[in-house]
Computed example of a mutant assay.
Amino acid sequence: MKKCLAGLLAFSLVMVAGCGQSTVSQGNDSNTGQPTEKVVLKLGHALPVDHTVDLASKKFAEIVAEKSNGTIEVQVFPSSQLGNEKDMLEQISLGSQDMGVIVAGAYGTIFPKLQISSLVYVYRDMDHALKVMNGEIGKELTDELLKERQIRVLDPFWYYGTRHLTANKPVKTPDDLNGMKIRVPEVAIQKDGLSAMGAAATPVDFNELYTALSTGVVDGEENPVTTIDSSAFYEVQDYLMLTGHIIANFMISISDSVYQKLTPEQQQILMDAAKEAGKYNNEITIAAEEKVVNELKEKGMTIIEPEKEKFMPAGAAVAKKYEDIWGDLYDRIQSVK
C-alpha cells in the first residue's frame, strides 16, 4: 500500500509539472545548509526564443533566482509551448498555469476593458503609455482584473513595440490610405482602428501575410519594425510609414492562487524582479527598434514621416463605439499629462 501511494504521489507531481503548475521540492539553503523548500514556477509566452521578451523573461528568472538565493526557480516556456495567449490566460485564471508574459490586448479576451490597449492612438507616446499603466488607471485596471479573473499583474508595462504601416506607395495622410487593403490581425478593435484611419482593413492570418503581400491580396500591413524585418516584408513592401498608431505592451502576471501560497518575502521578490526585468526589456526593445529602422532603410525601404496629427482622431472615433465596455476610460487616459 505504501509503495502504491508513493507511486501515485510521484505520478501526480509529474502531471502537475506537465500542466504548467508550480512544484515544490526539497533542497538546502546555500548560506545555512538547512533544508529548504524550493518553489518552481512555470512562465509561458508566445514569442520565439531570443525575442526581446524571451530575453527579458529569462532575465526575470535570473533575478528571482539571485534574490531568493535559489529557493525560487522560474522556468521559461517560449513559443506558445503552454498554449496560445488566450489559452494561457484562461489557465492562469484557473490556477492551472503559474505565470505568463502576455500582450495586453490579449487580456481583453477575458477582461474586455483591456481591449483599449489595442486602440489606435490611445497613447500619445511611450512616456504617456508608461504614465497611464504605471499610474492610477493602470492600477485600477489590474485591480479589477485580479478581482474578476484572479490574475495578479506583477508589472503592467513591458514594451512590445510600436506598430507602423508598410505599403508599396507612400502614405502621408488618411486620404492616401483610401481604398488601400491593409492587413490587420483578426482583432475587431484593430480592424476598426485601421478603418477609421482610412484603410480598407482586411484580416489575414499572419502565416499567410508574406504571400498575400507578394501576390497583391493586400496592399500593405502594419506591425512593429522588428516583425517587419524578421518576416522579410521589406522584400515585398517599398515604404515604411512611421505612423506609430499602436504602442503595444506585455503584462507579466501570476495566478493569484499560486501567489497566495508564497510567503510575503517571496511575493516581494517576484514584484521587484518583474519591475527590474521590465526596465531591461524596455531598454533592449527600444534599442532594437532604433537599429532595425536603419537596417530596413539599408535593405531598400523608403522611410516616410506621415502627418500623424491627421490620423490621430481615429482613436476618439473608435472609442465612442466601445463606450459601453469602458465608459469614460478613453477620456481619462487622454487627460493624463
Rank of each mutant, 00 (worst) to 15 (best):
Phe77Cys: 06
His45Thr: 12
Ile303Ser: 02
Val187Ala: 05
Glu295Pro: 03
Thr166Pro: 04
His128Lys: 14
Ala196Val: 15
Phe206Ala: 07
Asp205Glu: 11
Ile252Leu: 12
Glu235Lys: 15
Tyr239Asp: 09
Lys147Leu: 13
Asp238Gly: 00
Gly108Tyr: 05
Ile102Thr: 09
Phe233Ala: 03
Lys291Tyr: 06
Ala199Lys: 05
Thr211Pro: 00
Glu298Trp: 06
Val258Thr: 14
Tyr123Leu: 14
Pro48Asn: 08
Ala212Asn: 09
Gln34Pro: 00
Gly7Gln: 07
Ala10His: 02
Gln97Ala: 09
Val171Asn: 01
Tyr234Ser: 03
Leu5Pro: 01
Tyr123Pro: 13
Glu283Gly: 03
Thr173Asp: 00
Gly138Glu: 02
Ile182Ala: 04
Pro174Asn: 07
Ala232Asn: 14
Arg332Glu: 02
Leu145Phe: 00
Val76Phe: 11
Val318Arg: 03
Ile303Lys: 04
Gly20Tyr: 01
Ala288Arg: 14
Ile304Lys: 01
Glu307Pro: 00
Val74Phe: 02
Val120Ala: 11
Ile72Met: 11
Phe11Ala: 15
Ser25His: 08
Gln237Val: 10
Met1Glu: 09
Val16Phe: 03
Gly20Cys: 06
Pro203Gly: 03
Ala274Gln: 13
Phe206Tyr: 09
Ile137Gln: 00
Glu221Arg: 00
Lys308Val: 09
Ser255Cys: 03
Ala46His: 07
Asp328Gly: 01
Tyr121Gly: 12
Phe77Leu: 13
Gln115Ser: 15
Met301Ile: 09
Leu5Tyr: 04
Ser214Asn: 11
Leu165Ala: 01
Phe157Ala: 13
Asp229Ala: 10
Ile254Asp: 05
Ser257Cys: 03
Ile303Cys: 06
Tyr330Trp: 10
Asn223Glu: 14
Ala129Gln: 12
Thr32Arg: 08
Ile228Cys: 01
Ser79Gly: 04
Lys191Gln: 14
